[in-house]
Simulated assay, not measured.
Amino acid sequence: MQQKERISSLQIAFMIMLFEIGSTPLFMLGGKAKHDSWLAMSFGSAAGLLLLGLLLWIQRRSPKQDLMAMLTLHFGRWPGSLIGGIYCLYFAYQSMRNVRDLGELTAMTMLPMTPMWITMLIFVLTALYAIWKGAEVVFRLPEILLPVMLSFYGIIILLLFIMGEPDFNRLTPVLDHGLKPVLAAALPDIVSFPFGQMIVFLMLWSLWDKPGVPTRQSLLAYGAVSLFLIFMNALNVAVLGEGIAGISQLPFLKTVRTLSSLKFIERLDILVTVQLFVGLLIKMMLFYYCAVKGITGLTRKPVKWWVFPVGGLIYAASFLERDYTQHLAIGLGPSLRIDTIFQVVLPMLLGLSILLRRGEHNLNRSVRKR
């Protein structure tokens, strides 16, 4: 029988923060709202907080079970297993997207002469090794990597302010086109990416080393990372302006390159790239781990049976998209629409099933008392 793995409150909080940061600063989310994109990010995080509340409520109903067990319990063995299997494919798909992001980013910034298939294979094998060693190893990584990443972000932000690059007047006038463009930019796109991706923690909260659910730690971590992402979104617009920030594929890299006049520091974009590598690797690894954990729960086979097949599937699927432009178009377009089903619709149906089951149980108990 497989030994039960346990993770601490700090590891959960750090993982939430690092997972949510991921590649998010790389893109100009809410760009359709132009200079109000930071407001779109704010509304997206508020809607994501409501979704997080639903996920935590679901977990509190079954604190010792993960998503796969909940689905089979509340939807029935076969329907629940089918939905669970589709969720595993969804997690693998999200992991694939991050593998491709890692490969493209490496080719664009650090190793343009190295074949992308080599760098992507290295990233997948790195994640495979950590998952093979277990959840406790995977969750130790944020304890080391998050402080380093935030320190790097802090240095870059400090240098930007020292050089006088941000002009927050570029964020005004606030809501000059009304609230509708802001809400259209936030819903469902920003909710789906990155805030709705908290759905993966229904696979992970049950690993907490204490009784119950780490509600407070999860909410604090979510709140902190939301404020950070809102600020980073505003910073990109304040430095580049809504025009350049809106059309740039990688606006944060362009923001950092405005520091090119510094004579004592060169190639700060490499520092940004390393930060993004860390975020993307953790995100890819966690989706990969959840896909493996999900299949393990459905088949009752050991984790090590599925690490290599799932890793191979993720690696092979990462080559399906023709180029990075198509990759981004799918990821920020049709993919976000599909995300809504897995991040919002199915959790709401699961929550409704729990309520109905609970109501039926209370009714039967009251009948027996009579």
Rank of each mutant, 00 (worst) to 15 (best):
L54P: 09
M108A: 15
A92N: 02
G80L: 00
M116T: 15
M41C: 00
V99F: 03
S42P: 06
L89R: 00
I122E: 03
L54A: 14
A47W: 01
N98D: 07
W57Q: 03
Y87H: 02
R77Q: 13
P63F: 02
W78Y: 07
A69I: 09
G85F: 15
L52C: 00
D66W: 07
G53T: 04
N98Y: 12
Q59D: 01
R77M: 11
P79R: 01
G44R: 05
M41Y: 00
G84L: 08
L89V: 07
G44Y: 01
L55M: 11
G76V: 11
M96I: 11
R100I: 10
M120S: 13
L50H: 02
P79V: 04
Y90H: 08
N98H: 10
M108S: 15
Y90A: 08
R77V: 12
M120Q: 14
G85Y: 10
P63W: 03
P79S: 04
T119F: 09
P63C: 02
G76E: 11
V124D: 02
F43E: 03
L82D: 05
L105C: 03
T72H: 04
M68K: 06
L105H: 02
R61V: 11
L89W: 02
A47G: 09
L89P: 00
L111W: 08
L105Y: 05
M113S: 15
Q94A: 14
L89F: 07
Y87C: 01
A46H: 00
D66P: 10
G103K: 05
I58S: 00
T72P: 06
S81A: 15
M68C: 05
M113K: 15
V124K: 02
I58M: 06
F75I: 09
D101K: 08
S62D: 11
F91M: 09
Y90N: 03
A47N: 05
N98R: 10
A107I: 11
M113V: 14
R60P: 04
H74E: 07
R61W: 09
L73W: 08
Y93G: 02
A69N: 09
F43G: 04
V99D: 01
C88W: 10
S45E: 00
M70W: 02
M116N: 14
T106R: 05
T114D: 06
T109I: 15
S42A: 13
L102M: 14
I118M: 06
R100E: 04
V124A: 04
